[in-house]
Design a protein around this nucleic acid. Structure first.
Lengths: 156, 156
DNA sequence: CGCTTGCCTGGAGTGCACTCCAGCGTTCTA
DNA sequence: TAGAACGCTGGAGTGCACTCCAGGCAAGCG
């Protein structure tokens, strides 16, 4: 038994990286040009090619003339990458994760650990941001008070 | 009437950027060397000097031989900068804020707006991170399930 | 057929936020 | 009082994540 396909076919973990994010074609007709992927993801064509060069993407299918044709599965992967990027995860770490996925089943625990660590990072970053929010709120209310004081000053 | 001093003396908005963060000396004896500030803030001496060069710090007091001597107020400012940095605010924007503080009372509304915008940014970044967390949790439970499946496979 | 548009490649360039260096003066400790 | 440790400056270098460039192929259109 293997469960690798469920990871790489987009039928499971990788496919749940967000809402359908519209304008996809059904599987089977999913051969997007690079500019379509630009429109769907918000990344630039440069960045998409660069992701491929550094090993952050699997090898992308090509047309008979050598142009890239992205699949729905590639879009799923890009959606996950986008999410991981939001966490501040370095690109090198995402490449590492991509390598693990490529290497097959025996990397499951390693992937699990990496995700778990990332999860912890996200939690602590959220906590940091909430601390910052508290500071901002204090300063904002300070300025609001100061503004009122100056306003009442002017009307006196 | 002016309220600027309350902003710049550290008696108010700037001073509430966090807990006392220990080992400070009382006001009056607050002439920290750069290495003391390194220990207190976690920044490097290089970074502290660089912050000063780019206008992110007010002019720092000097000893008779030209060495920097930081005050408690400077530490307060650095604490705020640290918090703003956590939000992902670009250094250039923090420099802008520093300039506003230096320019005096008439920049109050501008500072207020800047802080408010930053607050909104922080809120949406928190939301983003929570979305990412949801994705991570789904993937993590996928791997946990897969791990269990593989384990029961081995014992069968 | 020529023209525009889209895509390809390897490699160089950019912007940000530091980070380090050389060369020198000052301060502390044994 | 010698040596280590600390600090100073201007300017160069680093690492990351893109971003752009030059030069060229291929497809679609009037």
């Amino acid at each position: 038994m293997t469960v690798t396909e469920t990871e790489t076919t987009g039928a499971s973990a990788d496919s749940c990286a967000g809402p359908p994010q519209g304008d996809r074609r059904p599987d089977g007709e999913d051969r997007y040009t690079i500019s379509e992927v630009v429109a769907l993801t918000g990344l630039t064509a440069h960045t998409l090619r660069w992701y491929e060069r550094i090993g952050l993407m699997p090898h992308i299918d090509r047309s008979h003339t050598g142009q890239r044709r992205y699949s729905n599965r590639d879009l799923d992967w890009l959606a996950l990458v986008g999410k991981l990027r939001l966490t501040g995860m370095p690109v090198a770490d995402m490449v590492r994760y991509a390598e693990l996925v490529r290497s097959g089943d025996h990397t499951y625990t390693e992937r699990f650990d990496l995700l778990q660590r990332t999860r912890e990072d996200v939690l602590s970053r959220i906590a940091e941001l909430q601390g910052t929010l508290a500071v901002l709120d204090r300063k904002i209310s300070f300025y609001a008070d100061a503004g009122r004081a100056l306003a009442s000053e002017r009307t006196r």
